[in-house]
């Protein structure tokens, strides 16, 4: 997304945020609080967010919780297989600092050393409200971008 013209990017992102298709990649507790987001109380489909079956259809990759030496290879491949424009949301403290597994020999301490993370959501595990706040920040960012383009 770096070499894209700002105007094109604003248009693309403006269309993207209206229908975000999510692919979940999780192998630990970081994602437990994400399940209520799909269900009836929080209902993320209100904002056009749905969970899809594979990374080829997805716009956002949600990496939940810590990754191990083995699973990070899959994360990188899956991230590479997603079509542009794409984003990564990292859930949980484990993806930021390693969390409670900070001194483990085979966990990944910082996800952005491996793939470009768009937004980190801290928490152990993060509450649904935190996920929605992250999504809201993305919306805000895109709206800002659109305003900038229009102002010029």
């Amino acid at each position: 997304m770096v070499d894209m013209d700002k105007k094109v990017m604003a248009r693309k992102m403006g269309r993207l945020i209206r229908s975000i298709w999510i692919f979940n990649w999780f192998n630990s507790c970081g994602v437990t609080e994400l399940l209520p987001v799909v269900a009836s109380i929080y209902d993320m489909e209100r904002f056009g967010l749905i969970v899809v079956d594979n990374p080829k259809h997805a716009d956002v990759l949600i990496v939940g919780g810590y990754q191990t030496e083995k699973s990070i290879k899959r994360v990188i491949r899956i991230y590479n297989q997603m079509p542009e424009p794409k984003a990564v949301m990292a859930l949980g403290s484990c993806t930021i600092t390693g969390g409670m597994y900070w001194d483990s020999y085979n966990t990944i301490k910082r996800l952005s050393d491996y793939i470009p993370v768009t937004i980190y959501v801290p928490g152990c595990p993060p509450r649904p409200e935190a996920v929605f706040q992250a999504v809201g920040m993305i919306f805000e960012h895109v709206n800002q971008l659109k305003k900038e383009v229009k102002g010029k």
């Binding site: 990374p55 899959r74 994360v75 491949r77 899956i78 590479n80 297989q81 997603m82 542009e84």
Partner: peptide, 17 residues
């Protein structure tokens, strides 16, 4: 457009090669 001959145009096989 898409990025030809990278990992992007590999088929999806649950994250494995």
């Amino acid at each position: 457009s898409y990025k030809k001959n990278t990992e992007e145009d590999d088929v999806f096989f649950a994250g494995n090669p």
